[in-house]
Nucleic acid binder design. Structure first.
Lengths: 173, 173
DNA sequence: GCTAGTTAATTTCCTGTGCAACTAATTTTG
DNA sequence: CAAAATTAGTTGCACAGGAAATTAACTAGC
């Protein structure tokens, strides 16, 4: 009922006029502005997917990311997770806390350095991922269903380029 | 000093082995998982750019988006902004409040419907954008500097596809 | 071996934002 | 035309998350 209007409003304006090239006047078409478009799209994807693990598994995004990394690496510390995911360490700390309380991961002080703690999936955590991961992959598959294999590959490549460039910019500015 | 380690940690693991195709085992490589990669990239871009207008113009993202839309459309209501940007109406409401207090926009009750209010840039708002927009565009230009024209165009096309698919998924699930 | 500095992780404080309840204006229905 | 339903925008509340202070474990310098 309420979706109708918003649906078409989404990208309705800005039909086709001045298709390419950034405007030079003192106006900015956000729909042609990559940072905005990218963020808007990513937010919507992230939020839609978040419902999958929020509603059905009571996991927030940070927790889900940590679980996914653990499924992949099997031994991590909070520090490493911060570095890999670019998440704030406070956020990571709280996510870990929640996961441990629910018995999905275990943490034991690292033998070589008592400050850090080794993180591991528990049996329960592994079991949960056994259900969750295929669902997430199915959801992704549906999302990219309209892309050709080439488009998908190119997309990842371009994203990698942007990531690298982002670091280059960060070094200077 | 501190960047060194994190820099290379970013995508260091997962070098080249099993380059393509999603894994079928019970593990998930987040670096191959589009929703994660996209969100991570978009977040970093957004946050980096946010500093541009936070530090130098005291604008948060919501405010900046509204200004940009106003530079483009010149007459809007909060409702429309919500529809265009997918932002929550409370967020939009507060952003508008801040912009008005700073004299960057004006709002007048719409003659045909007293509930809604027409939003306009003030002279001050327009002046601020005169400085800000070129900076934002320059920043974007630097970000995409390593992309070819074709890659840039394809990227936007693929994003449009994803947006449309996202709506299709949303209708069902 | 003790002091100063560093580092991993936690905690505190505070801001921004989503949700839901609300207000006020408008439209619809009977 | 009055009552009910809808709609634009605001506000209260709770919570997530970032910055900075804090704690605890380690390292370096003397």
């Amino acid at each position: 009922m309420n979706t109708e209007e918003e649906r078409q409003a989404g990208l309705a304006m800005e039909g086709d006029e001045d298709l390419a090239g950034p405007p030079t006047k003192q106006e900015l078409d956000l729909n042609q502005f990559l940072p905005y478009r990218l963020n808007s799209l990513a937010d919507r994807i992230s939020q839609a997917l978040a419902e999958l693990y929020e509603e059905r598994y009571q996991l927030n995004i940070a927790q889900w990311r940590i679980l996914a990394w653990l499924s992949h690496c099997d031994e991590l510390t909070a520090k490493k997770i911060c570095a890999y995911t670019y998440m704030d360490k406070a956020r990571v700390s709280r996510a870990i806390q929640g996961l441990e309380e629910r018995g999905l991961i275990s943490r034991t002080p690292a033998p070589e350095d008592q400050r850090q703690q080794d993180l591991h999936l528990t049996a329960a955590g592994r079991k949960l991922l056994t259900k969750l991961i295929p669902e997430a992959q199915a959801w992704e598959a549906e999302l990219v269903a309209t892309l050709t294999a080439g488009e998908y590959r190119d997309l990842l490549n371009v994203m990698r380029k942007l990531e690298r460039q982002l670091e280059r910019i960060g070094e200077k500015g």
